[in-house]
Design a protein around this nucleic acid. Structure first.
Lengths: 111, 111
DNA sequence: TATATTACCTCGTAGTTATAGGTATAGGCT
DNA sequence: AGCCTATACCTATAACTACGAGGTAATATA
């Protein structure tokens, strides 16, 4: 119902950003589209969500950035650091635990 | 990291409560244990989480309650209403969409 | 000339989960 | 009697964070 606190989205931006930036170095605008693509259009994170996450993760040492000039525009490329990869591993474990638990509860028709 | 807003938990209390109370009528204390059990100990929601959700959902007409005396203690049994079932259906759809999207993004190793 | 796309960004809000606390009865153990 | 555990209900506060709306500026397209 609410737009600001949608169901099942907590932790998702952080997870997806870390995951995709572990695979490839990308800049924010590119990342926004990559999220839409890799989630098969199921999840769209607007720029207003992605950029703050990028800044926050970089501040925490999870991401490293470098500026690159392209077409007269400047792009900021990000990549996951070793620390970020550890955090990703942690989040993946959490995701398995929570989604596993939910699916178990949804699955058993008998109590 | 954070204790108050842990990853992947948004919407989960509401989903599990509606799901379990659609299956069986239950009282709060019982529900807390049922959540732990049906999620295979993967998810534990404390009473401080469950009771407010029950009150909130009842206020919204998603649950109906009745008080029952048992062993000198009073129990408040809850059950999902028709409106609650519609909300549950909605949440299940959301869960499929979001978890499907995440798993797709995690799954493909190549972009 | 106007619009769409690329590319970056910030601010404010909303809403909900979690923790920590609180009350009270019943039953078991020493 | 005294203590602890389990049962059973409850509230208030804080912290977090995803979202929407907005803003800048360059390039490409119509």
């Amino acid at each position: 119902m609410s737009k600001t606190n949608p169901a099942f989205m907590s932790g998702v931006p952080e997870l997806l950003v870390l995951r995709l930036l572990t695979r490839d170095e990308m800049y924010g605008y590119e990342l926004v589209k990559a999220i839409r693509n890799t989630t098969l259009e199921s999840i769209t994170l607007a720029e207003g969500v992605v950029y703050p996450v990028l800044h926050n993760l970089e501040a925490k040492g999870m991401l490293r950035s470098r500026e690159v000039e392209a077409n007269g525009r400047s792009r900021v490329y990000y990549k996951t650091t070793a620390k970020g990869k550890r955090r990703l591993k942690e989040l993946l474990k959490e995701w398995d635990r929570v989604s596993g638990g939910i699916n178990a509860a949804l699955g058993d028709t008998y109590a």
